[in-house]
Design a protein around this nucleic acid. Structure first.
Lengths: 358, 358
DNA sequence: TAGCCGGGTGTGTGCGCACACACTTGCGAT
DNA sequence: ATCGCAAGTGTGTGCGCACACACCCGGCTA
């Protein structure tokens, strides 16, 4: 019944092995105070040799250090895309609380770039130990990360990745490939000569365009590769103006009789779906993005052929947890660029999609 | 700087409020030892009043209670289905270690029912605090759970669910619906009059049949609903006998010229794929299950049209974690039956599938 | 020589809890 | 009166770690 029975290696064990006291080991681990070259080397050696993993339970109990994470994301209503993302945040929050990590959410309006600007000003006055940043307004996020770099605050990106920043990690999908997937799903059931409607939402700010643009590139690239000969027609739609949208689409579909497919590159394909259902245009195949409630309904009813999704909950969860692990354990994510799975939802499998939120 | 500054209510606080010692409070909380009616009432009152929440961090640190979980699963080689499941186990293991939970794996041969029988005998002699059970041999698992019930050992099911047991939870997919998804993916590109080959592996034991049967039911049900008029032809194939399989399939495809689709209900669709590739039968669409290496390759090469997958890593991870939370925190899973998402993999999205193991 | 300084080191305490152990009190049996 | 016993209660220790603090020693200045 000797002490060797211990399966886990503790700081005292390290200390004994290196022939020093726990305090010295502690200094090496936290890299504080002065330690002689000699001891530093030996302790590091032992640490590495036994692959020391601190007991986080004990650590957070002893330290009592409180971390605060800022999550910067679009405001949302229930059933919208960012609500799913938020579910992941909430889940991570519950888990992170155990390690004295708290989460504060900061919201902006994804359709109003000035709201993001204002939020950044607010954030300059706040203190936090890490940030999860939704990169919708890419051109404003980039400069802001410079400030975070200076403040020594780590951050992760979600939604779409940004080059040239020091993000601890990115969690999201390859928008380009997600575009190709949508194309595949649509084109599978189309003649090479058919035309396709691309639904677009016009608003004040030009939100999400970064991601949407990449998706469209992927979409076009796939079609070209497959020998698609038809045309893409843009329909400029409005968020809450059914009458207007109907007019636009009636006009478009009348003019171009070859239209047999439709797609949107953001989560608003329910708008197009609503129109097609109302006009009973079952001859037009529709593919869209994101499993939000209204899209799911249209998929269920057979108006939408397929939805492409990007695990928003997982993005939120992993974003928070990555910062958590970095702050609490000093452990970097295995990979900086985490291109998450691109999910395909059909009428037949959508009902289970939300059952594994992580 | 008084003690009142404490935001969290600790046991000492409860004790002070109730005018007793911490030990008495402890006895009430854990409902061990004897406590006078009077004190019991008062302590409970205080507990309720301040809505006491124990600090789990401290608890698991102090208790040092070691839990052992048994994971009962098929033996596997790298690149096989259960290797993915195992990856989830490993991940959970790392996380669970923090709460003094260890994992022991017990393997059986999924193609040999007697190996499972033997394993059960072994398990009767082992002690563990919870079990994750892969339910391949359903008819033997059910009775075994009675024994676990008696021993007071909680267990969760993975792979396929079993009715009439006291499982803490189930993590897997609805096999029936997974069958329907495969049917949809296959039938999408088929004439209603085409015939379909169903590949089956014959072995000593009749493994996985529970799940395979349900999938087939779902498959047939979908086809019937959609007005499929063709026939299903069974091909009895062997695991490592290419020549034999070729003979069988040559024969079948020659006899039934209407065959334009193929499917397998377990993870061995690479066998059929190998044949179709060798014979250059690009006219036969093939759909199968599980993203194992050899299937993934065939999907990439375009021989397989689609794969249906069931997040084996998530099943393993969540199975272990559910037991963990139950044992350490006494918290039941939110839902007992966790039908996980049914994933659809095409050539275009498969490369990202393994990027979010949880 | 006393005093100081700073690099380097070790001891001790407490985080909130679980639990072993010692203890008190009242009461009936000897 | 002494003991045993059971019900009820309290004290103390340690989980693994962080960190405040005391310390030691050599070289330096006044």
């Amino acid at each position: 019944m000797s002490d060797n029975e211990h399966t886990t290696v503790r700081i005292v064990d390290i200390a004994r092995m290196a022939g020093v006291s726990v305090a010295t080991v502690d200094r090496v681990i936290h890299n504080r105070g002065k330690v002689s070259e000699e001891n530093l080397a030996r302790i590091n050696e032992v640490l590495h040799e036994v692959n020391y993993r601190p007991n986080l339970i004990a650590r957070s109990l002893a330290s009592g250090r409180q971390y605060t994470l800022a999550v910067v994301m679009p405001r949302f209503a229930q059933g919208e895309y960012w609500a799913d993302f938020d579910a992941g945040i909430v889940r991570a929050e519950a888990e992170a609380r155990r390690y004295n990590v708290a989460v504060r959410k900061f919201f902006f309006d994804q359709y109003d770039r000035s709201s993001f600007e204002k939020l950044l000003a607010t954030l300059r006055g706040e203190t936090f130990d890490g940030a999860v940043l939704a990169t919708l307004f890419a051109e404003m996020v980039s400069p802001f990360t410079r400030e975070l770099d200076e403040r020594g605050v780590p951050y992760v990106f979600v939604d779409s990745n940004l080059p040239g920043c020091n993000q601890l990690a990115y969690f999201g999908t390859s928008s380009f490939d997600a575009g190709a997937v949508a194309a595949r799903l649509l084109y599978d059931r189309l003649d090479p000569g058919s035309d396709i409607v691309v639904g677009r939402i016009i608003h004040r700010g030009d939100a999400g365009s970064n991601q949407c643009r990449s998706r469209e590139e992927g979409f076009r690239s796939y079609l070209q590769q497959q020998g698609f000969r038809g045309k893409l027609h843009y329909a400029a739609l409005r968020l809450d103006d059914e009458a207007y949208n109907r007019e636009v689409l009636d006009d478009l579909l009348l003019k171009h009789r070859a239209i047999a497919g439709a797609v949107t590159f953001n989560s608003t394909c329910y708008i197009l779906a609503g129109y097609l259902a109302a006009r009973r245009r079952t001859d037009v195949r529709l593919v869209g993005y994101d499993v939000i409630r209204r899209n799911g309904q249209m998929l269920d009813e057979g108006v939408v052929t397929a939805l492409v999704a990007q695990r928003p909950e997982a993005q939120g969860y992993r974003g928070v947890m990555a910062l958590c692990e970095w702050l609490v354990e000093g452990r970097r994510p295995d990979t900086a660029e985490n291109n998450m799975p691109i999910d395909i939802l059909l009428k037949e499998n959508i009902r289970y999609y939300k059952n594994n939120l992580i």
